[in-house]
Design a protein around this nucleic acid. Structure first.
Lengths: 167, 167
DNA sequence: CAAGTTATGTTATATTATAACATAACATTT
DNA sequence: AAATGTTATGTTATAATATAACATAACTTG
């Protein structure tokens, strides 16, 4: 497991703080370059927007943001960019609530594991080898070739359990 | 096949064969009665329709079917019935493709674990204690109270791997 | 620079789901 | 059984999410 990323089942992978966004964009640029993929201005911009949200964001929110920047934009503009970013593992889609979130560790392939608080919306991406292994083992049993696994757990986060009313 | 329910991590839970649908409806009726929930004609009908599909089905397909029966029906008709059926654990929603599938073992609470073949659409619900336990353990680590966990794995099923072109 | 490929712009529309409010059916108490 | 409250359904409209289809622009490669 890479030095720069120590997600070992205890460490949560939250969205980077805003001063880290530039780093992440640079990293994305390098990853794409290495794969002969075009990390265009539009794609960079969409990734930047996704990163700036600390939480999952809807496609139409991103579309509004894009329009704010003066650039012409329609739904396909943002959906195509999101498709590309997902294909490169830079963004995950949360199927249970139709939102998108930046991946904090795009260096290595992984299944998306999310814990989503349905009270405050806080969403944590985690790495849990046990879950990944269990899914893989079940796939072997079924003779099923896994392409993509999505694990989305909804419930109440730490902060929202403690009768904390002011979220 | 199914006697009662022997889902032990090796047994896949497929949708019951059509001669079993009536059993499942009876079972659903009893479950609802025991919970003081109203298993109305409409809800029964929608569950019956969902059961008759061997595979996940979209809400609007169900709506079309409902209309076929002569009954008046609009989107809320089917969505409300599906919401109820989900609340009773009789139906699962597959978030990754916006479809609904009957639960073959509504007797006991469980997280939905699905392997979906993106070639033929074949969808298998399974029980895997290892996955459930791993998710539970991670939740404890995060101090997260799980309400609902969805695991949806997409890939290629056994039959579709073997260069089988005539699916 | 010519030709092929990939990305983006643009318009329209498909698909999925819910809001809001009226009516009907059921449940409970009297 | 009538009155009342609650839950379910009917109905119309619309919101929210996503894609089709085709034209143009920008890169890429020989």
């Amino acid at each position: 497991m890479s030095e720069s990323c120590r997600h070992n089942g205890r460490t949560s992978c939250t969205v980077p703080s805003s001063e880290q966004v530039q780093d992440l964009l640079l990293q994305a640029e390098k990853l794409c370059a290495g794969r002969q993929q075009r990390f265009t201005e539009l794609r960079r911009k969409v990734l930047e927007l996704v990163c700036q949200y600390k939480q999952p964001v809807g496609a139409y929110d991103l579309l509004d943001d894009l329009k704010q920047t003066g650039r012409s934009a329609a739904p396909p503009t943002v959906y195509r960019a999101l498709d590309f970013l997902q294909s490169q593992g830079l963004v995950h889609r949360l199927a249970t609530n139709n939102t998108y979130i930046a991946c904090a560790h795009p260096q290595h392939e992984h299944t998306g594991l999310f814990f989503v608080c349905h009270r405050c919306g806080f969403t944590q991406e985690v790495h849990t080898d046990e879950i990944v292994q269990a899914v893989r083992q079940q796939a072997v049993t079924l003779d099923f070739t896994v392409e993509k696994a999505a694990v989305e757990v909804s419930g109440t986060c730490h902060d929202c359990q403690s009768g904390n009313d002011d979220v």
